[in-house]
Nucleic acid binder design. Sequence first.
RNA 1: GAGGGUGUAGCUCAGUCGGUAGAGCAACGGACUUUUAAUCCGUUGGUCCUGGGUUCGAGUCCCAGCACCCUCACCA
Length: 507
Amino acid sequence: MARREKMRQIADRGIDPFGCRYDDRTMMEECQEMASEVRWVKEDGTTVELPDFSDAQLDYRQWKSDQSPGAETGPTVRVAGRIMLSRGQGKLIFLTLKDWTGEIQIFVGKKQVGDEDFELAKLFDLGDLVGAEGRLGRTNTGELTVFAEKLTFHTKMLEPPPDKHAGLTNQDLRQRMRYADLAFNDGVLETFLDRTKIVKSVRTTLDQDGFCEVEGPTLHTVAGGAAARPFATHHNALDMPLTMRIALELHLKRLMVGGMERVYELGRVYRNEGISPKHNPEFTMLECYQAYGDYNSMMDLTEQIIVNAIEAIGGGFVREYDGNQVDFTPPFKRATYAELFQQATGIDPKDDAAVIQLAKNLNLETENRHLDVVRNEIFEEKVEDSLTGPIFVIDYPASICPLTKRKRDNPEIAERFELFVLGMELANAYTELNDPDLQQELFETQLQGLDEEESMAKMDHDFIRALRYAMPPAGGLGVGIDRLVMLLTGKKSIRDIILFPLQRPES
RNA sequence: GAGGGUGUAGCUCAGUCGGUAGAGCAACGGACUUUUAAUCCGUUGGUCCUGGGUUCGAGUCCCAGCACCCUCACCA
């Protein structure tokens, strides 16, 4: 109850323990940038640059006595943030204050702030939100510091903070109490701010390329556009079953029929499937469609999106992920599905007998299954994991791509690419199928060996009708935003880049 | 869904062969006007995940359950 008792004592001093408006803050980052404005002024009025504080040998106290007589000067700042560390020293307290741009040390001396504010400072606890106004300067050890002249109390933290060194490491608690994770664990806030920068950059890239952003329905009567199990729900007034969307595709294509020639949606989709370090039931997808384009134009766009996202968060094109180095310098490699298949297995993918034999050797099911499904399982098993990338795998077997246009000179091959990085599928794009009759046929003929949930082909009569109103030839692209954020922020678990991943409720 | 691991103070973690529950940080009291995870002295703090069982005696051994983590499967 110590914190509540201090809160009462703060209130007794006539101060609202939950604070109020506080204008004209200098953010911590700005304070750090203002370090060069801290100078030494000699008695004769001449100004001297301070020494190099990055020099570990530097003794600032000695330096100052060498410069004497004179005094340090610096700009006056007004900062507010959370108390991360506190070092009491009798009539002197050092606070480490953090806002969302960085940290700075506050020097609170009894003589400097006066008795009243010093008594207030004694009621501060780790985790409290406080403000300080004073001159920016350097302590004897050279640390950039706000020498407080006035203190402000903003908000009392009523819970004890996590371990000030180790932070909150329990994964369960980190997700359950993301607020504490963000506030007390180094780098967590920065990672999520990077996520925001990446998403913003994706939007900017598309906006500047003339795409318009739309919001499609998340409640679908037919969960199409991908192969996944949907969440089922129900509308009471209409007494109608509904599913949460598993993809954005089919509504965006309807909009292209309507004349939105460059359209995208960046939004949440929901899949009722397993949870893993790479899967969350709700995740963020980008899908964009460009009329009169094809999958080649989508490859260029994909590169542009990724290149711009990397530049938005910095750190260069060569990135470290899980001990691997990935070079995102464009252009990315391109290879056909067939040649990668051949390279990895030594078998010509067109040699049906050899493919079946290989599948049997790998203990894959071959009975009653379309050969392209078998081929693709071999591809997933033997090729995908070995793709360091970034690499565009192009030209997929047509029968596993029911929404994709076939190559004009070869109906067995679909104009599709997937972008792989370290075995992860980062993007998936087609030259879009816009022939309503063929689309209907592909929806009707379920692939052998695949039940409805495993197939992308789900009959959607309204979508077929839309295509009959003429959808322009187009390229379409889907990007798994969470995967992109994971790769660019170096996080190995999707739970580290989704603010509130799904969890069971606390008992 | 299958296998493995973890669960002890607010947080991070020890806990030997089954024998009265431990440390660091935080909190509380004290000293200290240039500290850096400040330091020093003292104090407080426990449903050992839950429920059964074995035993004179269980944090420790056994069984069941719950939660989280990892791997695999499904998938992006």
